[in-house]
Design a protein around this nucleic acid. Structure first.
Lengths: 151, 151
DNA sequence: AAAAATTTTTAGGATAAACCTAAATTTTTC
DNA sequence: GAAAAATTTAGGTTTATCCTAAAAATTTTT
């Protein structure tokens, strides 16, 4: 029924950004704001929002901004889970400071496998928060103590 | 003097592959072999080799394969250093097996910063080899004990 | 060493993801 | 409701991939 959803790294960037705006800063997600955050022209953002809408990740209303759909929220949380567990690793294991950890995690999160972040998650006893105290979202496949993972 | 060298993730894949052929398997690097490894048609490989040659990363002789230039070797080693230190992390800290570690490292190596891998390197006391016993190439900026890194 | 087989390259395209400017449209503000 | 601001549309450009089919070079076979 559902053709596998392919998200580019750039689309992922927007999803994370939109999620943080909509759910964590609780503000409307407008084109110009996104354009400034990403560092592109507004027209470029519009194009991206239309693409995300076509993929069913956001509800886009011309001239009025976007909201993540359920599917979009799930994707964003998957990405932010990866991002934040990488931050946990960098801060706790490598003594990175929070800011550096975030920068590095941003480069890698999209590419990290679910298995990798689940292993990190288990290793640290399923942390509830990342180093900057935002939520580490749950993955129901991620259970158990540090040892058991195989494949 | 030297305009900053921009390598795409795909180009990086070829560099790693060519390096391993040329220096570790000690065999000639031919188009068809690369095509099979990467999973594309020979014509696509030819195109890539020409691009790598333009960037000064390989010496390419029509119909006779490629050799990495000094610049190409340096780039390849930088990438393989990242790759192998990520493997070290995954195997030693997350108990990954060698094969899984390699797969995961392949997804991330290109995107990992030099600072990240140097921190891993320091944390493990500058390991000489990766889990599959290949060399971890040196970076002269990578010195010292586990603690001192800041910024 | 010539013919046949194989490998490699060239030529000519296709596609997808970004990004842009300028003009048109809609919304917001005064 | 007019002016200002934000947003979208239209029409392009660029870059990186990848492809097929035909041509060219190399290698193998006889």
């Amino acid at each position: 029924m559902s053709g596998k959803l392919r998200i580019t790294v750039n689309e992922a960037k927007y999803l994370k950004l939109i999620y943080r705006q909509q759910y964590e800063k609780l503000c409307k997600v407008k084109t110009t704001l996104l354009a400034r955050s990403v560092g592109v022209r507004p027209a470029t953002v519009t194009e991206m929002l239309q693409r995300l809408a076509e993929k069913g990740l956001v509800k886009y209303t011309r001239y009025h901004g976007v909201k993540l759909t359920e599917k979009g929220v799930n994707e964003a949380r998957k990405l932010l889970r990866k991002h934040r567990l990488l931050e946990v690793l960098f801060v706790r294991f490598l003594d990175y400071n929070v800011q550096k950890a975030c920068v590095e995690a941003s480069k890698l999160d999209y590419y990290a496998s679910e298995n990798l972040v689940n292993t990190i998650c288990r290793t640290y006893g399923h942390p509830k928060n990342c180093p900057c105290n935002k939520a580490v979202f749950c993955d129901e496949r991620c259970r158990g103590e540090a040892k058991e993972e195989r494949t």
